[in-house]
Every structure is written in C-alpha cells, then in structure tokens.
Design a protein around this nucleic acid. Structure first.
Length: 122
DNA sequence: TTTATGGCTGTCA
DNA sequence: ATGACAGCCATAA
C-alpha cells in the first residue's frame, strides 16, 4: 500500500471520494465536479476521475453512477468500460436517450436539496 | 527534477 | 444545439 499523502489539503482524497460516491443512491447520478465538491475538492473533478479509475474490479463503490456534466459517459480507453457503465445504470432504471445521454436534471443526486445550483431542476 | 497528458468544467462563438 | 478555448492540478514518464 502506498504511503499516500499524509499531509496537505489533498490528504486522503481518494477515500473521501469513495465515501461520497458510495452515498449515491441507486438509480441516481452525480457528476465528477459534484463529487469533487462534496469530497472537499472543489474544482478538482479530474482527480475524482483518477480516483474512480484506480478502483479495483469488484469494488463496492458504485463508480458507474458518476458521469460528466453533460450527462453522458466519458470516452474511456475501451468501449467495453463505458458500455459496462451504461449497462449498470440501465439496470438501476436510468434511461438513456439517443446520444447515450441521461437527463441529469432528472437523475441528479441531491444530497441536500439546493446544495448545488442547477437551474430549476427538481 | 521537468514535461506532457488527461475518465473535467465553464465560458464563449 | 455543437465546437473551440482556457483553467485546473494529480499522475505518469
């Protein structure tokens, strides 16, 4: 196991990211930026991507519930992975429209209603 | 050490 | 609606 950053503002960032992702209810979605903010890493959506990418297979973290701000699955190294994400989401009742996008305004996870501004979504 | 890249986001055309 | 640009900063080489 890596020593990890034992100091600094980013100390233990990965565990925090995982903790937040784990709280996403089934059938709900969150964006990288949203996760980053909730994990105390505002503006570091990329790191969230790295954290999720580092997850082992068979993890209990629902990484598939994290998508980009457009509501679409980011292009990954292989089609298999992004397809898997879609399959998993559909298995939770999330519908994709043409273009492989989901209605974020409809599925967005709101840990605290009004925490993040997103128009008049409900 | 430096450099390049990137599972993103927000703004502007 | 889509496409281009610029910030952001951790990770990999």
């Amino acid at each position: 196991m890596p020593v990890a950053m034992t100091s600094g503002p980013t100390a233990g960032a990965y565990p925090r990211v995982y903790a937040v992702v784990r709280r996403i209810p089934r059938g709900r979605l969150a964006t990288y930026g949203q996760i980053a903010a909730l994990a105390g890493l505002p503006g570091r959506a990329r790191q969230v991507g790295y954290a999720l990418h580092a997850l082992p297979s068979g993890t209990s973290v629902p990484w598939h519930r994290v998508v980009n701000t457009r509501g679409s699955i980011s292009r990954r190294a292989t089609f298999g992975d992004e397809l898997l994400q879609r399959i998993l989401l559909e298995g939770e009742g999330v519908r994709f429209d043409a273009g492989n996008r989901v209605a974020l305004s409809r599925y967005r996870w709101c840990p605290r209603q009004g925490r993040l501004p997103r128009g008049k979504a409900r």
